[in-house]
């Protein structure tokens, strides 16, 4: 009789100890969690401004390089401020420089992931002034070379009338609307020319140029 009472008592104490133990764990994790969140939120507030500025600078730098205004000697923010006027048409942003050349963003799917970039055209939208790549995940060394200056330079002065053609590597450009492709990356080339042509067509429609 007495032994069972003792057992009962011990059980109760154990239960209490268990509860306290659980409570301790909960409090511990709550304290740690709120400490961590407080720290991160503060840090985020601090770095968010910097991060947004970096993203904007990167984008503006690419716009400048597509319009061939990127001579490297000036501050990107300053050069952008001085040369570019921004126009909004039907949800698309156009970047115009002092000579009237227009740059805008294009994007689409590539071989491995999304490709996006900026193409700059002359005022009557017939000749490419320059091209810049914002984002690509193509095979490094093959399709990935679309982001290299050497390849991007090939587009300068190329006609887009009626549309841009990126040739397979074994043929070289004859017509004014053709560009030499990259060896081993003909699919990336096709994707790229498709998305550029699509964007140009849309802008032509929006501006009423045919």
């Amino acid at each position: 009789m007495s032994s069972s009472v003792v057992l009962e008592k011990r059980k109760k104490i154990n239960l209490k100890a268990l509860l306290i133990d659980k409570l301790k764990m909960l409090i511990f994790i709550l304290i740690m969690g709120s400490l961590a969140s407080a720290l991160l939120t503060t840090l985020d507030d601090y770095t968010k401004v910097l991060e947004e500025r970096n993203v904007e600078l990167f984008f503006h730098g690419k716009v400048l390089s597509a319009l061939n205004l990127d001579d490297g000697s000036r501050d990107v923010a300053e050069a952008f401020q001085a040369n570019i006027t921004i126009e909004q048409i039907d949800g698309r942003t156009l970047y115009r420089d002092s000579s009237g050349a227009i740059a805008f963003k294009f994007s689409g799917g590539g071989l491995w992931g999304p490709i996006s970039g900026i193409v700059a055209l002359n005022p009557d939208l017939t000749i490419i002034e320059g091209l810049a790549i914002l984002e690509q995940q193509e095979t490094p060394g093959l399709g990935g070379r679309i982001a290299e200056d050497e390849f991007l330079q090939r587009f300068r002065g190329v006609s887009v009338d009626p549309e841009l053609v990126i040739l397979p590597a074994r043929r070289s450009a004859v017509n004014p609307n053709e560009v030499d492709g990259i060896t081993g990356a003909s699919m990336t080339g096709d994707f790229l020319s498709d998305m550029i042509n699509k964007a140009i067509k849309e802008v032509r429609d929006q501006l009423g140029v045919s």
Binding site: L39, L40, L43, D44, T47, L50, E51, N54, F58
Partner: peptide, 12 residues
């Protein structure tokens, strides 16, 4: 996450 934020801010 701190390192990630730091890198985004200072070495984009």
């Amino acid at each position: 996450i701190s390192v990630d934020l730091f890198m985004k801010g200072y070495v984009p």
